[in-house]
Each structure stands twice: as structure tokens, then as C-alpha cells.
Amino acid sequence: LVQTNGLSNSLNLEKATLTTLDSGHCTAEEAFASEDETEESSCLSTEDEDSENEEVIRKKFPESFQVAGGQRLGSENLTDETSDVEDLLKEEEDYKEENNYSTETSGALKWKEDLSRKAAEAFLRQQQATPNLRKLIYGTVTEDNE
């Protein structure tokens, strides 16, 4: 189980980096990836997502602002507007990514916990839920034969 978890984690990391690479807008990719990792560990339940999203955006805001500022020093008004637009775009992207993250990793983790025990439980439940027709029809004598 541990091994598989590790594998899935690494796979997800790869995916994360890939997705960030795909979106050409982002300038600070590495930072994003690291941030995402921390998010992944912190946000397990979907309810917290919205609040955390906001936090993440706040964290990222200065970085992107700096970068944008470095590129266009001349007109501050314009940079403000563009950065706002960028932020909006980023917001959406981040949101999507996080969604993927929480469903893929935590869901997969939960699903893979104690598979054999779950199977055993399901089998026993099934056994108890379905009536033993043979016993009902032929009486208890058949139990000894079986």
C-alpha cells in the first residue's frame, strides 16, 4: 500500500508540473509547483477549498505583481490592470488544478485503503443479505451435507 501511495503521489506531481507547464501564462512555475504540493497536503476536504484558494491567491499576488512590474516599469496603471486580468485568469486555473488534485489524490487514497478488508466485509454483507434459498427450501438437513 505504501509503495502504491508513493507511486501515485509521484505521478500526481508529474501531472501537476505538466499542467503548470501547459499554461503559458505562469512565470514562476517552480514556486507554483511547490505551493501546490503544500496545498495538496493541507486541503483534503472540498469544503475548505474556497477559503484556501483565496489565501493562495493572496500569496501569489505579490510575486506575480513583482514580475509584471519588472517587465513594465513605465506605466503603473496599465500594469495594475494587466495584473488584475492575470490574477483573474490564474484564479480560474488554480481552482481547476486544485479540484483535480483533491479528487485524484485524496479520493484515490481513500479508495485504496484496506482493499482486502473491504472486500471481505462486502462478501460477508452479501452473504447475510441474500437468503440461503437451498436451506429455506430443503430445510436444515442440507447444511450438514454441504
Binding site: T130, P131, L133, R134, I137, Y138, T142
Partner: peptide, 15 residues
């Protein structure tokens, strides 16, 4: 049940 008593045959019954 009657088949069992007359012919000694029991069916395998799967739900």
C-alpha cells in the same frame, strides 16, 4: 421438496 422425496434429487440454487 416433493422432487427430493420422490427422486432424491436436490437442485443447486443460486440467487
Amino acid at each position: 421438496r416433493h422432487l427430493k422425496s420422490f427422486f432424491q434429487i436436490m437442485f443447486k440454487i443460486e440467487t
